[in-house]
Amino acid sequence: MCKTLRYILPNDKILQINSNVIRDLSKFKQSTTTSNESGGILLGRILKNTNHLVIDEITTPTQYDIQRRNYFKRSKRPHQKIINKRWKESNQTQNYFGEWHTHAEENPSPSNTDLNDWKKRVIRDKLNLDFLISMIVGIKQTNVWITDRDCKTFKLILTNDIG
């Protein structure tokens, strides 16, 4: 059984990533020497009363995306279509929170390509949040970062790790 993961955000709110997302992402792990990089976007909700965040849906690579051993290019349209569709279907509660991709390393950290893309994204994407959430799915570990409006990137800490 996959565990639900919870991270502390800089504003002291919690970012929860539901177990079904963890399970879906684990299918894309680059566990073999030939598996290619995958990616997609993260969809989630802002909770009333508490303002905690929940990520409970993802998109996965489409035929319009490019997948290489150490490279992934996500096309805009098919993923944007899903955002629009889910936003409508969910009575405007489900929205785009950020992106995910895989790395062929155990405990992943962002490459320069990643960091630049995240910064660009915070400026160009029209976000519902004040920051962009990015997940990198490594072979053993999954790590999460946010990039704020000042283009600063922070690694998030699991709530379980701070007791």
């Binding site: 990089e37 990616g39 976007i41 802002i46 490279y71 992934f72 290019k73 996500r74 096309s75 805009k76 993923h79 944007q80 955002i83 629009n84 936003w87 409508k88 405007q92 509660t93 929205n95 785009y96 992106e99 991709h101 490459s111 390509t113 990643d114 893309d117 994204r121 160009r124 994407d125 029209k126 976000l127 519902n128």
Partner: peptide
């Protein structure tokens, strides 16, 4: 949320 957020193509 007032509208669906807009994403762009991306590279990683």
């Amino acid at each position: 949320s007032p509208k669906p957020s807009i994403t762009h193509s991306g590279e990683s």
